[in-house]
Computed example of a mutant assay.
Amino acid sequence: MMIGIRYIAALSTVALLGACGADSCNVVPNRSFTTNINQTEHLGVYATKGWAYAQGGYVGLVVYNMGTQQDPKLIAYDRCSTVNPEAGNRVEVQGMLLVDRVSGAKWLLEDGSPAELAECPLRPYSVGQQGNVFYVQN
């Protein structure tokens, strides 16, 4: 009987430790896409510390310019909240935060890391550049 309890306790510990690993935050469903980011449709993101919403990802993208207007350096995140991602709640930009109005969770716009309530960062996507056009893809 004591061996059975220890076995269950050991399995529980392994399961909990596994849940805390890097892969446990890969909670937003994967969708293949490529989205072009250009000044005509996404003017705001070309400003220093600017941002814009865009199509793509699971429930849309937020694209942020970590660089300057003259030398943009774009990063992109899925707008899907990592708190109950199966609900598909979209985060919204509020100042320098991304906010899930349903759960109250918040993330930093500059790197997508959790700021309040959320445990997992927003899902990042690769951003490339060809000439003056950027593209976000998965």
Rank of each mutant, 00 (worst) to 15 (best):
L109V: 01
V102K: 12
R31W: 02
E86H: 10
F33V: 06
I3P: 01
L11R: 10
M1W: 12
E116D: 15
C25I: 10
T40S: 10
A19T: 11
V91M: 02
A22L: 13
R31L: 09
G67R: 02
A19G: 15
N38F: 05
G57D: 05
S24W: 08
L16P: 01
T68F: 03
E92W: 10
G44P: 00
L117C: 02
C25F: 10
Y135E: 04
G104W: 00
W51T: 01
M96I: 05
V45I: 04
V102T: 12
D23H: 13
N89C: 02
V45W: 03
V27K: 08
D71Y: 11
Y77C: 03
V27L: 11
L11D: 06
T82E: 01
P121E: 11
C120P: 02
N65Q: 07
S81Y: 00
S24K: 10
G128L: 13
Q130W: 07
T35K: 03
C120W: 01
D78Q: 06
P29N: 09
W107N: 09
T35G: 01
E119A: 14
S12H: 05
L43G: 00
G21I: 10
A54F: 03
D78Y: 07
E92R: 11
N65D: 06
V14W: 06
G112L: 04
V133Y: 02
P114Y: 01
A76L: 07
I37V: 10
F134P: 05
V27R: 09
R90S: 13
Q130G: 08
V102Y: 12
E41G: 01
T40A: 11
N38H: 05
E41A: 12
A15I: 15
E110W: 11
G104C: 04
I3T: 13
G4H: 12
G21F: 06
H42C: 03
V45Y: 00
